[in-house]
């Protein structure tokens, strides 16, 4: 019950971020579906984002003067926006790939001809 009654700290957030990050990496590594790989990227970005947010929250840590404050939030915002852009491009590529190769399996896309 310690976790329920004690306030959580920075480490807790970092643990969740780490899990998300590793899940994303695994996803990128093992998925054969191009969109699955894309989902892995999203997870990685979110894991990183969670760390940024956690580091910027002043009351999650004792040494709150070291909290990154606005910087963390702003970087998280940039990441979200860039993720949107990245997803759009990746999706366009994936769909084109699908149209040209009639498959979405990344393992089969070893030729450079369109």
């Amino acid at each position: 019950m310690d976790l329920l009654t004690e306030p959580v700290g920075l480490s807790h957030y970092l643990v969740v971020g780490a899990i998300l990050f590793v899940c994303g990496v695994l996803c990128m590594a093992i998925k054969r579906n191009a969109l699955g790989v894309l989902m892995g990227v999203e997870l990685v970005l979110n894991g990183a984002n969670l760390n940024f947010i956690a580091f910027s929250a002043p009351y999650l840590r004792a040494d709150s003067q070291y909290a990154t404050g606005l910087d963390g939030h702003l970087i998280a915002m940039f990441v979200i926006v860039l993720a949107a852009a990245e997803a759009a491009v990746a999706l366009a590529i994936a769909l084109n790939y699908y149209n040209n190769h009639a498959t979405i399996d990344v393992d089969e896309g070893d030729e450079l001809k369109g």
Partner: peptide
């Protein structure tokens, strides 16, 4: 990778201290 990250996350003392609690 997970082990490494978790180790980092919990091993830095400053990060474990809970400001809210104090």
């Amino acid at each position: 990778l997970l082990v490494m990250l978790l180790h980092t996350a919990v091993s830095v003392d400053d990060w474990r201290v809970k400001a809210v609690a104090e």
